[in-house]
Design a protein around this nucleic acid. Structure first.
Length: 219
DNA sequence: ACATTAAGTGATT
DNA sequence: AATCACTTAATGT
């Protein structure tokens, strides 16, 4: 797909003709393969990423090197962290890993201020994506604080399915455990329970969400 | 057939 | 719910 179409379909709230033209002129498109590291903790951010296609994982790291998944990014998202990070010229406090092959449009930071003034739909986009990320983080936070691992696992699978638009994942129980900062055994046991309930189907390196999953997730 | 890696299980704290 | 020790199952060479 051409950039113009991608912008129109994934970022339909960006409306001004001038803005779209500038995005096309000034932005740099880059492709990434699954598993690549897009951003490492401590790195400086030089551009705002707009996710055109694919999906990514945003991770936080603990002192001992443990990882914790904060949220997924999907097509149409941007990285809220990058807005403030760029403006304050701060190091990244997160790591970003490519989940599925991804295409990203990078916008140099220097246009941020100008566009915020010039294009209402850009300002709106930045604000919206910020508030969206914020409430997503709140959800993750209270899943951790107020709920058990079972709820977190459900949310994880649900979010992953939403980000990748797939219901079947090639993933090891161990990898899920790392994202949740938990143990493989605990994840295996919970998945097993879910399989017995007919909510998921398991295989080696494979987890499939069944029709019943969505319903179960909501309860 | 053998080695390696993923997943399942029970016990312990 | 985390960790350990161990078993069982699946997969690659």
């Amino acid at each position: 797909m051409e950039l113009e179409e991608l912008l129109a379909s994934r970022f339909s709230t960006l409306s001004e003709k001038g803005l779209l033209k500038e995005l096309e002129d000034v932005g740099m498109v880059k492709d990434y393969l699954s598993g690549e590291k897009l951003m490492e903790i401590g790195q400086y951010i030089k551009a705002i990423p707009l996710v055109l296609e694919g999906s990514l994982k945003v991770l936080r790291e603990g002192e001992d090197g443990n990882e914790l998944l904060l949220y997924f990014l999907e097509a149409g998202d941007s990285c809220a962290m990058s807005f403030t990070c760029c403006m304050k010229d701060e190091k990244s406090s997160i790591r970003v890993i490519v989940e599925e092959d991804t295409r990203i449009l990078f916008v140099p930071v220097k246009y941020m201020d100008e566009w915020m003034m010039k294009y209402p739909s850009w300002k709106n986009f930045v604000l919206m994506s910020y508030s969206g990320r914020f409430s997503e983080l709140m959800n993750t936070l209270d899943a951790i604080v107020f709920h058990g691992l079972d709820d977190r696992l459900l949310k994880y699978l649900h979010d992953k399915s939403k980000a990748t638009k797939k219901s079947q994942f090639d993933i090891k129980h161990n990898e899920i455990a790392q994202d949740l900062n938990s143990s493989r055994e605990a994840v295996s046991r919970l998945l097993k329970k879910m399989e017995n309930l007919g909510v998921v189907k398991l295989g080696r390196n494979k987890v499939e969400l069944l029709d019943k999953f969505e319903q179960y997730y909501l309860n």
